Amino acid sequence: MLSPLVTDQGRTTIADTVVAKIAGIAAREVSGVHALGGGAARAVGAIRERIPGGRTNQSLGVSVEVGERQAAVDLQLVAEYGVSIADLAQGIRRNVISSIERMTSLEVTEVNIDVQDVFLESDDQDQQDQQAEPRVQ
């Protein structure tokens, strides 16, 4: 059975990292997603971004399995407080599936979402307050 990626003229393969990056960007586009990844992964990502020349890892919190015609996606994320998690998950699935299928022609068989935490504005303010205090005198 031929597909847009497997034709009589040749075969196109798409690396897992490409699909993971597309999924990560698509998930971040959905309002209500504060961040992708669990706590430790986000901490390492924040350090990487502060290094001169460091880049944001768009696939942080994303794992994928890619075959010749299909892909499956697993996402870990932090949701904004007050957002309906069921609606958020539905919006993420819709955007991730649409983006991957449009860009790669792979059929997305599933998008599993693991909400690791809920972000509160006060959490961010507490962290900023701690950083503003001098550590030494």
Rank of each mutant, 00 (worst) to 15 (best):
Val66Ile: 03
Arg69Leu: 02
Ala46Met: 10
Val108Leu: 11
Glu101Thr: 07
Ala15Trp: 12
Gln76Glu: 15
Gln131Cys: 00
Glu80Asp: 13
Arg48Ala: 13
Ala35Cys: 04
Arg50Ser: 14
Arg11Met: 10
Thr13Asn: 05
Gly38Pro: 04
Asn95Glu: 15
Ile22Ser: 07
Gln58Lys: 07
Gly53Phe: 08
Ser122Pro: 00
Pro52Ile: 05
Gln70Tyr: 01
Gln58His: 15
Gly37Tyr: 05
Asp74Lys: 12
Gly32Cys: 12
Thr104Lys: 02
Glu107Ser: 09
Val64Gly: 02
Asp16Leu: 02
Lys21Cys: 12
Glu49Gly: 01
Gly53His: 09
Val108Ile: 09
Glu101Ala: 00
Lys21His: 10
Ala46Val: 00
Gly39Trp: 12
Ala86Cys: 09
Leu106Asp: 06
Asp114Trp: 00
Arg94Glu: 13
Glu29Val: 01
Arg42His: 09
Gln128Tyr: 04
Val66Pro: 06
Asp126Tyr: 08
Gly61Leu: 08
Gly91Val: 11
Ala26Arg: 04
Val73Lys: 08
Gly54Met: 10
Glu68Asn: 05
Arg48Gly: 07
Val115Ile: 13
Arg11Phe: 07
Ala20Lys: 09
Ser105Lys: 09
Arg102Val: 08
Phe119Gly: 03
Leu60Ser: 02
Ser98His: 15
Asp16Tyr: 00
Pro52Asn: 05
Gly91Gln: 14
Gln127Arg: 14
Arg28Lys: 14
Gly61Val: 01
Val33Gln: 10
Leu120Ile: 03
Phe119Lys: 14
Val83Ser: 11
Val30Ser: 09
Arg94Trp: 04
Glu101Val: 02
Arg69Ser: 04
Gly54Pro: 12
Ala46Pro: 00
Val19Thr: 04
Glu121Ile: 05
Gln128Met: 10
Asp124Ile: 06
Ser122Gln: 14
